[in-house]
Design a protein around this nucleic acid. Structure first.
Lengths: 197, 197
DNA sequence: GTCTTTATATGACGAGTATCATATCACGGT
DNA sequence: ACCGTGATATGATACTCGTCATATAAAGAC
């Protein structure tokens, strides 16, 4: 029956999704074209609708994919570390020059939040769910650290992380961009008690 | 010589710019079309190139226009107030539900920062300059408040303001959106010593 | 009233896009 | 060797957008 390896289509779909996710963050929801994504994935535009019912469906799937990566990175960065060290390490990565300079593979919230209000309900829902899980991730770590009102602290933390990277990406001079990240690193660590060790 | 009122073209240009600025924040740089802006301004698309050399030139001019409004609002909100009260009042406005729900007339950084990396050099430069002036505005107030390292504190403040509004605009449930703004209001005021009065 | 100039409108062109109908290709079973 | 089907390619359609050439409308000068 199966004329192709059974998971061939699945793998193609995931390849397309990966390139879609990168192009989304790099060029924005309107800047990404079906043909360009397929070309990046090594295919032509025609076969697209065998994998997704519409461009919007692909974008929604790519959003879930990106937030899956966010959770993977969190798990990777905090693996086998106590909550304080793990959180500090994640903050350091989030506010690093490497993350600032690689929006295509970085946090979707910093790269795409501003575009969400004008997207389809499906995309907005997927994005909101992802962002919420991300904040919950922080809240759990802060709770273990004995913070009172960990939800509020996590919300404030997420806000400054996202804002700092967004603004740092605006700066024209590299040293200004560095200073923005450094200022938020210090402010966050001080306020969350992560600088004492 | 002058067959029309001398400032007629200037006024038309400003009307177009105002609508361009609103549409930019509402629909994003790719979502705004020359024809739609002109229609909003009560004109047709043809006359556009009498006012701007290109769509990009209009966007760049609209960016300057928006940041001009930012400074006007700052002046308006902090007028005749001591630095602490003025800053607190601005923070309250920035993190208000009204601002969150009206991106089209709100802060350009929260509405458009994510789109800047993929815009023309001219637009990026105008945006970076505007954002920098905004942070300098905060730094001046913080300096008057006797903060040490007011530049760093202003940077951190701007980051959390922008991030909080960006994330609040994602939330699907209104009460979550409110909680996000409230958490950052408290965190900012506490850390800057604005809650004591 | 007519003329001249400034401001705006009409209409067209070329490029790019999402979508879909149809054709071709690759592969495992026989 | 070849056949049938699942996966991808080709090509076309309808639409939108930025841009510009040209036409019309408005208003003071004579």
């Amino acid at each position: 029956m199966a004329r192709y390896p059974s998971d061939r289509k699945q793998q193609t779909r995931e390849t397309v999704l990966r390139h879609a996710a990168n192009q989304l963050r790099a060029h924005g929801p309107e800047g990404v074209s079906v043909a360009a994504v397929m070309k990046d994935a090594g295919l032509t535009h025609g076969g697209f609708y065998a994998h997704f019912s519409s461009k919007d469906a692909m974008v929604a799937a790519a959003i879930e994919y990106m937030f899956g990566n966010v959770r993977d990175r969190w798990a990777h960065e905090t693996l086998d570390l106590d909550p304080a060290t793990g959180l500090a390490r994640y903050v350091d990565w989030y506010l690093s020059a490497a993350h600032r300079d690689a929006p295509a593979t970085g946090c979707p919230v910093a790269a795409l939040a501003a575009d969400m209000p004008r997207m389809s309900a499906k995309c907005r829902a997927a994005f909101a769910a992802g962002a919420q899980k991300m904040t919950a991730m922080f809240a759990q770590a802060l709770e273990r650290l004995g913070h009172r009102d960990p939800a509020a602290a996590a919300s404030s933390l997420a806000a400054e992380l996202v804002g700092a990277v967004s603004i740092a990406r605006l700066a024209t001079e590299p040293q200004r961009a560095d200073a923005i990240l450094a200022a938020s690193r210090r402010s966050i660590k001080q306020r969350l008690g992560l600088d004492a060790g």
